[in-house]
């Protein structure tokens, strides 16, 4: 049986839907089924399996990076393959070790790429100042756009003041 959607590949996914007592059968190939929005397969799963499937779909990019499969985190020994299996990273250094793949995954699940919330007080004084300067600079840009020059001048002074804070050595 051919796939009802592309009419090219063999249909391997067969779904029976019952909507308002109307029975409808859909036959698709795996690829079209993955893309189809009205197939919601209701099987028990946990969040970790879910992540794994997202990772798999990210891997199906035109450029295949095969070597990543053998990548291991030097710090904790977590293999990328194992992370894919269990959906959990082994240590904070894994984020660096798997930097080829993780940002894509994080973007997919979080919808964002950059943290804007709390920053640890002691650990991140330099970072905090840097983030604040970034925020102020963005605000400054907006002020210039909207021709709020008085506010812009205030912001500029604030930025200068923050930039002159001596960096504390860690």
């Amino acid at each position: 049986m051919l796939c009802e959607n592309c009419n090219k590949r063999t249909a391997t996914v067969h779904v029976t839907k019952i909507v308002n007592d109307q029975k409808a059968e859909i036959h698709l190939c795996e690829q079209c089924a993955k893309e189809s929005e009205d197939i919601l397969i209701d099987t028990p799963f946990n969040i970790n399996n879910f992540l794994t499937s997202i990772l798999d779909s990210i891997q199906e990019s035109p450029i295949k990076v095969d070597y990543i499969k053998t990548t291991k985190c030097d710090n904790c020994g977590m293999a990328y393959g194992k992370f894919k299996q269990i959906g959990r990273l082994g240590c904070s250094k894994c984020y660096g070790a798997f930097e080829e793949k993780l940002p894509g995954l994080i973007k997919r699940i979080q919808g964002h790429e950059v943290h804007v919330g709390k920053i640890p007080k002691c650990a991140g004084q330099n970072i905090r100042i840097k983030k604040e300067i970034e925020n102020l600079k963005n605000e400054l840009k907006n002020c210039i756009k909207t021709e709020e020059f008085e506010r812009a001048a205030l912001l500029r002074d604030k930025i200068r003041a923050l930039e002159s804070v001596p960096k504390n050595e860690e």
Binding site: I47, N48, L51, G87, R88, L89, G90, S92, Y95, L102, L105, I106, I109, Q110, H112, E113, V114, H115, G117, K118, I119, P120, A123, G124, I127, K130
Partner: peptide
């Protein structure tokens, strides 16, 4: 464990950030 760009680092990427 905190990263300048993605915030607090967690075992599962679904918790990273805040």
């Amino acid at each position: 464990a905190f990263d300048e760009k993605i915030g607090y680092l967690t075992s599962c990427p679904t918790n990273v950030g805040t």
